[in-house]
Each structure stands twice: as C-alpha cells, then as structure tokens.
Amino acid sequence: MRDNAAAWLQTVDWLLGAALFILAAALAIAVGVAAYGLLRLARWTVGRIRHRFDVARMQTRPQLRPATGQAIDDYWTCRRVWAKPTREESKR
C-alpha cells in the first residue's frame, strides 16, 4: 500500500512540475506577445501623428510659382549636358 501511495505521489509531483513549467512557458509567451503588440501600437501611433503633422505642414506651405521660361531652359540644358551615352550606345 505504501509503495502504491509513494509511486502515486511521485507521479503527481512530476506532473505538477511539468504543469508548472508549461504554465511558466505560456506566461512568458503571453508577456512577449503583449509587449510586441504594445510596440506595434506605439509605432503605428507615432506614424499617424507624424503623418498628421506632415499633412498640416503641407497645407500651410505657399504655392510654388509657375516655372519661367529661363527655368525651363536651364532644366533642359542640364538634361542635355548630363545625358551621357551608355557603353553600348557609344560603341555604335
């Protein structure tokens, strides 16, 4: 009888230890998932705040002046000067 009770207690002790280990692992995973969710929420919130700030700043900027003839000429001059042929084009 004592042998049966001792074997049962050892089995229960082992099962309680395993259950405690599983519970601790599940708790650690739950804490990790919660921390990850909070970090994601914080990053999303900062992004939304930054976006709203950028939209407000863009709405307060003055409109750009239309390009003059000289500015357009300067643009095309830069395009022609910096347009270098590729190796294949230069070999032809």
Rank of each mutant, 00 (worst) to 15 (best):
D54M: 06
V12M: 11
L16Y: 07
A67P: 02
E88W: 05
R92P: 07
R2L: 05
I72N: 03
L15S: 01
R43L: 15
I49F: 13
D3P: 00
D3T: 06
Y36V: 00
T11W: 12
P85L: 09
V55Y: 06
R43G: 10
Q59P: 00
S90F: 06
D13T: 13
A24E: 15
A35N: 13
I49R: 14
G47S: 04
A71F: 02
F53Y: 02
S90T: 09
R57Q: 14
A7T: 13
L15C: 06
T60E: 15
W82Q: 14
A83P: 00
W14E: 11
S90I: 01
T11V: 00
N4Y: 15
W82C: 14
K84D: 05
L9A: 09
R65Q: 04
G47A: 07
G37D: 09
R43V: 15
G17W: 12
G17L: 14
W8F: 10
Q10E: 05
R92H: 12
W8N: 07
A25L: 09
L20I: 14
L16F: 08
R2S: 09
A67C: 05
G32P: 10
V55R: 06
Y36H: 03
A19Y: 11
R87I: 04
G69F: 12
A83H: 11
G37F: 05
R65A: 07
V46A: 14
F53V: 01
A5M: 00
R80M: 10
A25T: 12
R2M: 08
